[in-house]
Design a protein around this nucleic acid. Sequence first.
DNA 1: CTAAAACGTTGACTTACATCAACGTTTTTT
DNA 2: AAAAAACGTTGATGTAAGTCAACGTTTTAG
Lengths: 194, 194
Amino acid sequence: MIDKLVQHINDRIDNKLTESDISLLSEVFHLKKLRKHQYLIQSGDVCKIAAFVVKGALKKYTVDETGKENILELFIENWWAGDKESFMIGTPTPYYIDAYEDTELLIINKSDFIEKIGKLSFISELNYILTERQSFQLMKRLHSSQTLTAEQKLEQLQNTYPEFFQRFPQHIIASYLGMTKETLSRIRANALKK
Amino acid sequence: MIDKLVQHINDRIDNKLTESDISLLSEVFHLKKLRKHQYLIQSGDVCKIAAFVVKGALKKYTVDETGKENILELFIENWWAGDKESFMIGTPTPYYIDAYEDTELLIINKSDFIEKIGKLSFISELNYILTERQSFQLMKRLHSSQTLTAEQKLEQLQNTYPEFFQRFPQHIIASYLGMTKETLSRIRANALKK
DNA sequence: CTAAAACGTTGACTTACATCAACGTTTTTT
DNA sequence: AAAAAACGTTGATGTAAGTCAACGTTTTAG
């Protein structure tokens, strides 16, 4: 179970993990299973965990006054799910995260993170790499959100994360792209004609 | 000149800079002045510098086929201007950055960054803090971009960065918010009525 | 000092996308 | 196996914001 996390880390850092690193990870991360539709976090919670997705799929979203879900991130295997700002700063999260499929996570709680692994160099290194990549991707998504047509947004997602289309239904993809399911449906029907 | 940078760093890291840290910074950063409308970087360049804004104001934007500017970031005093992805990875930047006012920057080039300061702990710490904050802010901006009305976007910006309204004309603010200058103008006229 | 840009506003018109609603199909639940 | 929920599509209609254009004001440049 911990193997996928170990490999995830080894793929990203300079020096491979040692046996003792790995046994420390096994100690502080524990397995959590979520059934489809179960929440990992809910709006208003302070996010006290970081979660690595071993298996399954989740979505991160807000809910507006009218009850409409607005999806910000989708997570599948080898992604980290959670609200990093809430986790790091301790502010209540505005997001919900729930499992879209039955899901297995490796969870670490905040106190273990801070006391036991937060200061290890491989964790800092990983954390930095992931945060930096996250910010590069968000900059691109913001730019796309502000400049592309619905059709271009779809095309871009098909190029960057084609796996999402295998894992999530269209109304979820649509929300992630900031459009309605009807618009996405029409665009796809249109694209097929060409 | 270096003082503002020193203070910027001291405000963000745990242990204050030593005299030798400061003299190292003075050595690797040099002052660059940009006249209004001058470019700091242009689309297609590999961004080989990081720039701290001592005085002035800049904008970061793309230009589409029709020549329309699309502003992604605005920089004023105490911000870092540049394309971090291009700087770090060495890919050509898609952005232009130019001075909107006469501007003074403290510049460090990539080789000095890597060889002389990149591995210092205060630089890693600063870099991490700024990158993390950037990613938190981008997440919020993405969410706003996808969920708020033009009027709500304006209101939010007035709350988060009121100083922008003193430094940049409305058509620049409008582009930063992902709307046209006409829309921004009408929204403001409307808001006044209330 | 004068000309030229840059800026902001307003009106008329257009458009991309949202909303609302109905319906058929597939998947899940019991 | 039946019922319910989730999903995807299509049509009719609405609307927020974009486009185009004109014009007055302010700022900048020669």
